[in-house]
Design a protein around this nucleic acid. Structure first.
Lengths: 333, 333
DNA sequence: TTGAAAGCGCTAACAT
DNA sequence: ATGTTAGCGCTTTCAA
């Protein structure tokens, strides 16, 4: 049978109130009593039930994490850093992969509410602010990662996608490319990167061509299909800026399938700097997101919010950094 | 304020017992009453507290997942399939990455016990059976994934590592390789694969050479270092069987660093068939583990155990399958 | 310094 | 068919 606080109290000849106090280090307890209680707790291998203490109004010490897809290396890394920071701070993580699916999103939110998690991290391309507002209204602490929720006041950690798109594109322009295609995810982040892309083009006097801008799902196959579409025209682009490393790898495959070479015929830039970028062939030039810091930051923000250590909401913006490898090269005349 | 069962009861002019009964669909309730209660629940946006119902002796509907490292694509895929199956069955997953670290293992186990999870999935190179015995003794349902716990009676899902090692090695032998090195993880699975490797060698009359067997941590860097070590001798192996795809990629890098080519000079076989194998250069011949089924199976086993739908423990063994790509080739005379 | 007792929100006998 | 009530294991006043 699992031991309860009553077992400890009886064995130590004190009341459960006393035991509770030594566990939580509250109230004033005599040193001898404290020792005795500790000893009995050890003897009985007693561990307080978090469920019971949660019911009494304390925290559950668990926080929900909504993330699009654990199987995507970028999100897996992110989840890992969030998990680590959470555990460091005494919280455990309940994982929910949403697949960018609004239905799953709200289903999981409901679930997490029922479980009385202390807070929720939204690391997803959340479709509707309504859910966020609802959470906020219910006073459930939340923190949003990697997405600007401009219309709502929440704690957010974002990486500047405009800059990311801008830097990637500018780098390609510097290499002499003029016809630069881009294949992004059909999400807010994708559109923001496209804005950066446009800005870079414009700044360099290159005319924007809508036909060079495509959307793709986050998969190798998707990248390949869109890559083929983009590269199939006789007047094909000499460089492609992809929405993430997975898509970029699809584009590489497309290039190869057309009998062309990376980076000789087509330069490619990815996004995220996952392990995929490091090991792909050729190694991928990519826009690095500081996932380690990102995870840590959201978690810290959320915990501060939970503990009420913070006045008002905070918005942390991090900067992406171009990581140059071998999938990009100067344009050949 | 969060609504409670009392709010619903009052609003619907019934007792809390009645509300509880319609929620859980137990006892006999008049149709009109039922409708009324449902309606009020909706109006109030009432969601029963799982914490409270858990305290009353019911399940928490959460299960703990101990896994070495979410950031490793293989485990991420596994975690994803476990999560999906869990959610399908109404359970949520509490993630714990252990880094193969026994201290973290027991720390997380303690945590999960306090949270009264309904069960725990051990998908780790668990170092000591003691923890498992303890859990078993406490009657906490567990299921073990990807590791044979031969001395203890638990539900397990494993992939036959002996066969995996055997198949990989035999394939290399069939290609004409005689000097075959192997770099495995220093874990039970690794040793089992080495046994398969030895068996294949012996069966083909190739003498076993201990110097060709190395251990490495699960990292590209580790694989590269061990790869260099293995390949540095003048009498270097013509093929390497690696412990997982990540290590295999490290070996590829080692081969390149020595100015050699894959597969012309050195054939390489990985393990796991993660996305890394598909996108590496050259695409990796690898031993595929059916992670999708694996995750589903452990979860099913665990839930059956939790629900007591099963007499005795079950041991499910799945078979790995060699997936041939371009990192292996016939030996050159 | 310690203990008695009232909940937290819910379930499950047992009554009615 | 519905309600009363006694817990579940813990925290927290309030007394002693």
């Amino acid at each position: 049978m699992k031991k309860t606080i009553y077992d400890v109290a009886r064995e130590a000849n004190v009341s459960i109130a006393t035991v509770s106090k030594v566990i939580n280090n509250t109230g004033r307890i005599g040193e001898k009593t404290r020792q005795k209680v500790f000893q009995v707790m050890k003897e009985l291998d007693y561990q307080p039930s978090l469920v019971a203490s949660a019911l009494t109004g304390k925290s559950t010490y668990s926080i929900g994490l909504l993330i699009p897809d654990l199987a995507n290396p970028f999100f897996a890394e992110l989840a890992r850093s969030i998990e680590d920071r959470g555990h460091e701070l005494g919280y455990s993580i309940v994982m929910c992969s949403t697949d960018y699916n609004p239905e799953k999103e709200s289903k999981y939110i409901t679930l997490l509410k029922q479980k009385s998690v202390d807070g929720i991290i939204l690391a997803s391309g959340f479709q509707n602010d309504a859910v966020i507002r609802d959470l906020l209204h219910l006073k459930i602490p939340i923190a949003v990662l990697a997405r600007d929720v401009s219309t709502v006041s929440v704690d957010t950690v974002t990486v500047d996608d405009f800059i990311g798109g801008y830097n990637a594109t500018r780098y390609l322009l510097e290499l002499g490319h003029k016809k630069i295609g881009t294949i992004q995810l059909d999400l807010e982040v994708g559109r923001e990167r496209i804005r950066g892309y446009q800005h870079a083009l414009q700044e360099n006097g290159v005319e924007y061509d809508g036909k060079l801008v495509l959307f793709s799902p986050s998969s190798v196959e998707g990248g390949k299909q869109m890559g083929l579409k983009l590269l199939h025209s006789p007047d094909r682009p000499t460089a492609v800026f992809a929405g993430n490393d997975i898509v970029a790898i699809g584009v590489i495959q497309a290039v190869r399938e057309l009998g062309l070479s990376v980076p000789d015929d087509v330069s490619i830039v990815g996004y995220d700097n996952t392990i995929l970028a490091a090991i792909s062939n050729p190694p991928l030039t990519t826009v690095a997101q500081p996932f380690h810091d990102m995870g840590r930051q959201v978690m810290d923000l959320l915990i501060q919010e939970i503990k009420g250590e913070k006045k008002g909401k905070k918005r942390v913006v991090m900067l992406p950094e171009l990581c140059v490898r071998e999938s990009t090269g100067k344009i050949k005349k």
